[in-house]
């Protein structure tokens, strides 16, 4: 396959940046999307041009490091991570537009690399159960109904890639935040800090400058792990209950 790539290039955070076009030839259908970019980068380096910078690590769809807004969709045309996208999803002669995640809370660092540390700070605000190592009860002391554990797992599968933010017209991080709030609100171990957690994580999410939720459902439709917006509803419930009843003034 021969393709034209329209890629966002930006030297650093301060740079204005812009699109640049590249031709890639002899692309195999069996290549992954990122391998296609590897090939481009090899040829750019050989020519003495700065290779395109993009985030990636595990390349098996679980670390959440890869991003890319491909042809108008986060992680490209399939509901999967970019690293799991293969070139057979594209046609010969096609022009592919590649952009970084766009959000005030995700500043572009270089080319397609963005800073997602806002997500870490949301977790730091309360996405945990405060137990120290040691001194915990036996793992089987508290039975958890399978349906509840499964639901918690559904939410816990979030890989923190930020596709939800990219998909959302408001650059909202509600799917990400709600997935963690849900997971811990569902489990008995999470009850003690349940209210405080919801309050603090929502406050941090807002402080980071993510948008509000319009319930368009785009995040759920694009989430590579299929996290459901029922989690957002649960977060809302948790938050409203918390603000009216918690001890935090």
């Amino acid at each position: 396959m021969n393709l034209t790539l329209k890629i966002w290039r930006q030297r650093n955070n301060a740079d204005k940046g812009g699109f640049k076009e590249y031709k890639v030839t002899e692309v195999s259908k069996d290549m992954s999307f990122l391998e296609m970019l590897d090939v481009l980068n090899e040829s750019l380096t050989e020519k003495g041009e700065d290779p395109v910078h993009f985030d990636h690590d595990c390349r098996e769809g679980i670390c959440g490091m890869c991003s890319l807004y491909i042809n108008g969709k986060p992680h490209g045309p399939l509901q999967t991570t970019t690293c799991q996208l293969h070139m057979r999803s594209f046609n010969d002669g096609e022009t592919i537009t590649i952009e970084p995640w766009r959000a005030k809370a995700f500043p572009v660092m270089k080319d397609l690399v963005v800073d997602r540390s806002a997500f870490d700070r949301i977790i730091q605000a309360g996405g945990y159960i405060s137990v120290n190592t040691g001194g915990v009860p036996d793992a089987n002391e508290i039975p958890i109904p399978k349906t509840v554990a499964d639901k918690a797992m559904d939410a816990a599968q979030c890989i923190g890639c930020g596709a939800c933010v990219a998909a959302c017209k408001n650059a909202s991080a509600m799917l990400f935040t709600s997935a963690k709030i849900s997971q811990l609100a569902l489990l008995p171990q999470g009850q003690v800090e349940r209210k405080t957690r919801a309050e603090k994580m929502v406050a941090q999410m807002d402080a980071e400058g993510f948008g509000a939720c319009t319930n368009t459902g785009a995040c759920e439709a694009e989430c590579p792990k299929g996290i459901s917006i029922t989690n957002i509803a649960r977060m809302n419930r948790e938050y409203f209950t918390a603000v009216v009843s918690s001890e935090n003034l």
């Binding site: 042809n71 108008g72 969709k73 952009e99 766009r102 998909a167 650059a171 319009t214 368009t216 439709a221």
Partner: peptide
């Protein structure tokens, strides 16, 4: 909210296929 949401993405995407993931009305309330 509209102003707040707009500020959350100061630079938009050049290309968007939002119609594949959400209903038109939901994006244009």
């Amino acid at each position: 909210l509209s102003r707040y949401n707009k500020a959350a993405r100061p630079i938009g995407f050049a290309e968007s296929k939002a119609n594949t993931n959400s209903a038109w009305a939901s994006r244009n309330m």
